[in-house]
Nucleic acid binder design. Structure first.
Lengths: 145, 145
DNA sequence: ATCATATAGTTGCAATAGCATCCTATTTGC
DNA sequence: GCAAATAGGATGCTATTGCAACTATATGAT
């Protein structure tokens, strides 16, 4: 009946959500590669790139590039950590702070869009199941490294 | 409790599954960008690129590039459709046919990995919920175009 | 029959992302 | 105290992907 593999579901869903988010962020000069970093920085002002990389679960190179773009667009500022000059402390700029509510609204809209015609309990279930799959994927990737 | 957005779940899960699949396909010269095409061609020998693009839900350029790679690696063959010389008919080569069982096993392993510690009914539910989200995403993307 | 339009596929470009490597600053071991 | 190892971050390269523009073939309206 439903013989579509998880691999395909995840791939298509990812690419489609990218298209939706890119479309909504375009007018702010941002793309799908940056918005999750803004959310994370808003939650933890002064965070460094290593911690951001861990939270975002990506490569440190990806973090560096996303932050470069956010900095050049004026959404964030990087301050050398004088206590350990290998680190930067990352903060939202005023422009970044001002954008956060808009961004949260955009993300809320995306969540609503994806969960159209789903009950609250189905939404919870979805997150739980995604969470389980993600945990399994993380363990497998750890095994590979 | 669980305030991770769908956007982040989907993004991380996609990237991690890519890492897993890339790792498993590496020894065959393939990457995550090609394997779903092989599955689709195995199911519909002689399919053309437009139909493949529709099934894969991606851009026709992505299809063209994936098929170029599969062809240069010897997994598929493209025959001009003499009835309409704009089309190619896509077939698996002998090498491609021979690889399909291996590929199916790899995908089965991925599915098993992702669904570790999930009951059969949770797996079904996951697919149903992914399916709903995907339908919603498709509708939204249609709206944007 | 001809010319406009539509369609299948290709190519160029840009964005995202991971891996490997490099650089500089810090820490550790002797 | 200094050499070696480690750590945070940057850079180069490659793969995947989407969009836009292009080519070549086919269809349709006049």
């Amino acid at each position: 009946m439903n013989d579509i593999s998880f691999g395909k579901y995840i791939s298509v869903l990812y690419r489609y959500t990218q298209i939706i988010i890119n479309h909504q962020l375009k007018e702010y000069g941002l793309g799908s590669g940056q918005y999750l970093f803004l959310i994370a920085i808003a939650k933890s002002p002064g965070i460094n790139q290593k911690e951001l990389t861990a939270q975002m679960m990506n490569d440190k190179a990806t973090t560096a590039k996303a932050l470069s773009k956010l900095e050049s667009l004026g959404y964030i500022e990087r301050q050398k950590d004088e206590a350990d000059r290998r680190n930067y402390k990352i903060f939202l700029s005023d422009k970044g702070e001002a954008f956060i509510p808009t961004l949260r609204a955009i993300l809320q809209t995306l969540t609503s869009t994806l969960s159209t015609e789903m009950t609250a309990s189905e939404i919870d279930q979805s997150k739980e199941l995604l969470d389980k799959m993600l945990e399994n994927a993380i363990k497998e990737v750890d095994r590979l490294k």
